[in-house]
Structure formats: C-alpha cells, structure tokens
Computed example of a mutant assay.
Amino acid sequence: MLAAFTTAGGVEVGEVPEPVPGQGQVLVAPLSAGICGSDLHLVDALAGLGDQAPRIVLGHEFCAEILETGPGAAGRFAPGTRVVSVPHVLGAAGPVDLGLSPELPGGFAQRAVMQESLLLRVPDGLPDDHAALTEPLAVAVHAVRAARPAPGDAALVIGCGPIGLAVIAALKADGHGPVVAADFSPARRALAERLGADVVLDPATSSPYEKWADLGVVERPPSPLLADDVPAGNVVAFECVGAPGLIQQIIEGVPRHSRIVVVGVGIAPDTITPVSAILKEVSLTFVFAYRQAEFAHALDLLASGRVEAESFVTGAVGLDGVAKAFADLHSPDEHVKIIVRPR
C-alpha cells in the first residue's frame, strides 16, 4: 500500500507493508489525517540521524473508515462506519503509538489498524476533515481542565498556532472568559478573533501583560496578606509555543496567584527563576495529551458545532502532496492545519 513516511531526507511517499490487525483490533482506511507540529519536529529530528533514521508512517490525528474486524474484536462497528480514536493500540509489550512509532502505520497511509475498544463513532454530518481535529482539540480540552478556570477568570493564551487556537476554542465553548490571545502572525491573530478571543494582541507592539485591569482582574495581595475569605488570583495563562524563555516571561507578567499551564512542546533546555514564581505563589502545570473522556468531549464539541472547525482547516492534500505540505507549514502565516486525504 502507499503511505507517507519519514526518511533521512524528510518525508517520502512509497510502498510499505500492509498492516495486519492483531488481537482486538480492526483494519481501517484513513479518510483524513491532520499534520501536527510534532510531526514537523519529528521529521526535523530524524533528518539528523542520516541512514540510522527509522521509517515512520506519520499521522496521529485521523478519521478513518472500518474495513474489517480482526481476531478477538467484538464487531462493535460495521464496515463503512467512520471512527476516530486516541492514537494507540495495545501491543504485546504495551501501548504502541500510531503515527509516531515505526511499529505500525499512522493516518498518512491507505490502511491502518486501530484498537476496537478505543474507537468512537463519528456522528453523521461531521465532515471527515473536521472529525480529524478531535485529537488536537482534545489536547486543548485537557489543558483547559488542568487550568481549573472559574467563572469570571481571565485567560491568557500565548501563541495562536493550532494548539493555541484550540485552547481558545475550548475555553469559549465551555463558557470561559474573557480570553486574551497573543501572536506575532496577523493571520493567526485573525483566526483567534474568529474563534472568540475577546482581546487579540501583537506582542511586537502591545504587551499581553498590561490589560488585566481592563478585564476585571484585581491584583491580590501577597500570600501573607491574603485573608482566608478572599479568593486567590483569577488569571489562567496558557503557554502554547514551547520557545525557551517564554515560561519565565509569563511568570513575570501574570498577577500574583495565577495559574500557568504549559502546553507548548519545548524541545530545547529552558531556565526559570524559581523565586519569581515563589514570591507570586504562581502555580505551574505541564500537560501531555488528554484523557479518553476528554477525547470524547472534543468530538462532541466538533459534532455539536460549539467549535468552529472550518477555521482550523486551511489546506488539504493527497499523499503525493505531503512533502510540500510539510514545507508550507514551516511558514506560520500560510496555514494552521493541513489535512492529508490518503485515498
């Protein structure tokens, strides 16, 4: 079968072995699969390994169609049913990543295998491309829940790439706000506003840390002076970039007793000054992926129209267009999410 896979030179399309469903698994045909920022990082990292780079069929954000049931599967879904899933299957040695591991192909392939017990049926009326957004939106749902926003809390989203935009959408879908969004890209700022951000800023010209009073944020006193009956800070901030130095910048910029959630995947080493956070009693939470219930909630948000999926999908390609799509996504002003349609 044809698939797009990693090589020492980037991404290529060619023949790969057909996947065979194992115990409790199903064979599927991917219909739509999103290109994630982690896919870009992985391709760049593997390029440095030369001939030692493993071949990985990418694509962990997908919507697929059931083809047939494998051994031990219960047959919960008839052939032709559209499904989404957290990108894992249960192998003999434990969970195996789909789209991020050389063991099994991800969604950038004509066929793949998935764990039947993890599948969710895609509701009728939800387009394939939009259903494929379930996975990245679930990341945002998990980040928002980790922040524990209360009614009236102000939210600050630093970085309006796909995950930052998804955080904005998840916040607004669940009725949280006001939301301040900051990004250098005019195109991404426009999308942030379209998705419901109440204040949208260009950090090159306006500091996102100077709008608290306008948003009803009251600076609380230091911890020793905070009475028991006075609520703590009412700001939640989301770091959605992963650039070194940004966590410290947010610590210095938010009011006392704020909650900071780090969603951006920082690859390079970073440094913070703990006393800056200690004196403000700032809480710092790092999040990874999502829970299964949050994945299901993300699908419901898309199916119900509470998240405007159309804003995220800015391009679509077949397998033969994957390499160019990866190149295009390195320019933040052109695209948010490019969908791969393997058929």
Rank of each mutant, 00 (worst) to 15 (best):
S206I: 05
S206R: 15
S207K: 04
P208H: 04
V217D: 06
V217K: 08
V217A: 06
R220H: 08
P221A: 07
S223Y: 12
L226E: 04
A227F: 07
V230S: 11
V230D: 13
A232L: 10
A232C: 03
V235P: 09
V235M: 05
V235F: 08
A237F: 09
F238W: 12
V241E: 03
G242W: 03
A243Q: 13
A243G: 03
P244Y: 10
L246T: 07
Q248F: 00
R256G: 03
I260P: 02
V261C: 07
V263H: 10
V263T: 11
V265C: 12
G266T: 00
G266V: 00
I267W: 10
D270R: 09
I272H: 02
P274R: 06
S276I: 05
I278H: 10
I278M: 13
E281L: 01
V282I: 14
S283Y: 02
S283L: 01
S283F: 00
S283P: 00
T285V: 14
T285I: 12
F286M: 10
F288G: 09
R291I: 00
R291T: 10
E294H: 14
F295C: 05
H297R: 14
H297I: 03
A298C: 03
A298D: 01
G305L: 09
V307H: 05
V307D: 02
